[in-house]
Design a binder for these strands. Structure first.
Lengths: 202, 202
DNA sequence: CGTTGAGTTCAACACTTGATGAGTTTCCGG
DNA sequence: CCGGAAACTCATCAAGTGTTGAACTCAACG
């Protein structure tokens, strides 16, 4: 039986297969490193079909990042409850996201963000508009303090993800997440609600 | 004995020019994003000359990373002095390195490390052999505790560098470094020498 | 002088990348 | 059962990549 061209019989789940393959590829190689050809091969499909569904590589990437990244959940999950344990809940929700099914997308995002220019800019504005604007009111401080506090906490968590999920340095990579929650939680708590002498006037 | 005939090295500035251009390019674009042709153009030179001097792109990159990255200085600078202020001195030395002339190389390293596979592995082993092996004895704890403590502190600093120098998110990017020292120092101090209940048995 | 050999350039190879447009096969509503 | 549309593939393009080898320039030596 000769390989036939044209429409495949049966289920049109191809689009999801491509998205899935794209997520894996972006997570492993980053935006630049992942080629459309590799993604197509991973999905068992012709490269042109990727363009047929998603247009350009940019759009594919954005589509890949669409639903899986929603920091709103994390923010809400962390800020519900008493104020004195925001840090611990924040770290716990953050790690749960990376360990969950949406984790590969997050790895892809982190890898790609550092790699190319436009993703960096995109991510920067994403942080400003999506994270800061939503998290600042929850703290109930003046804006200047809140911005620095939140970016400090976020940078800490970003570094943790970088070391644990991208670089995979031990023993951080295989430590139980609750261990990290106990270790990092208080530090995040201090950034968000604690006294920071020498940083803000008392 | 040295009967070297032929053209004498009348203009060896070119090699340095290429190295300098390479450092900038790698810092801006990362390993993959920086092309040999772009580096050559930046140095006002033919692409083939880059290969004449450095062989392959890998070797060029390694040469670029050679001298500028030496964490030994930071470790020594931080661990000289009383034990109760290691954290502050560590953060101060770390930020000074990124703000100094060797900073661009560090940015290049961070950008590239996240981008490609072999640089990630290279960096991971670099951390293990160069940083851990040197820093562990200074803490005077058992190895298991020391490894986790140091990687926690290092991941925090890496995240700080990522946010401040690569992604450039405000207000972190333009905050005075002493402000960050005051903010981050105590957290690092706690990771290195403080009590970590729930992490290690008391 | 002529030879030497480092500094430098030119042109090209072999390859990969993202993207297109035409063509083929199947499905589904009328 | 027919015709349009969706799904799918093939061949191909124009750029850009790292790398190579031959050739040219030119200062220093014998």
């Amino acid at each position: 039986m000769v390989r036939r061209t044209g429409r495949r019989p049966g289920n049109p789940d191809t689009r999801e297969a491509i998205l899935s393959a794209a997520r894996s590829a972006f997570a492993e190689k980053g935006y630049d490193g992942a080629s459309i050809r590799a993604i197509a091969t991973g999905a068992g499909v012709d490269p042109a079909l990727v363009h047929h569904y998603f247009g350009t590589k940019d759009k594919l990437f954005l589509e890949t990042m669409n639903s899986p990244i929603d920091p709103v959940d994390i923010i809400n999950e962390a800020t519900d409850g008493d104020r004195e344990e925001i840090g611990v809940r924040f770290v716990r929700a953050f790690l749960a996201m990376w360990d969950g099914p949406r984790g590969t997308a997050a790895v892809a995002l982190l890898r790609s963000v550092v790699g190319t220019e436009w993703t960096t800019k995109l991510f920067r504005e994403f942080i400003i508009t999506q994270i800061l604007r939503r998290a600042v009111p929850k703290l109930g401080l003046d804006e200047e303090q809140a911005h620095l506090r939140i970016t400090l906490a976020a940078s800490h968590l970003a570094g943790l993800a970088l070391a644990r999920y991208v670089i995979k340095v031990e023993p951080l990579a295989s430590a139980p997440s609750e261990t990290l929650v106990a270790a990092v939680g208080p530090a995040v708590q201090r950034y968000l609600t604690g006294d920071l002498p020498g940083v803000f006037p008392a």
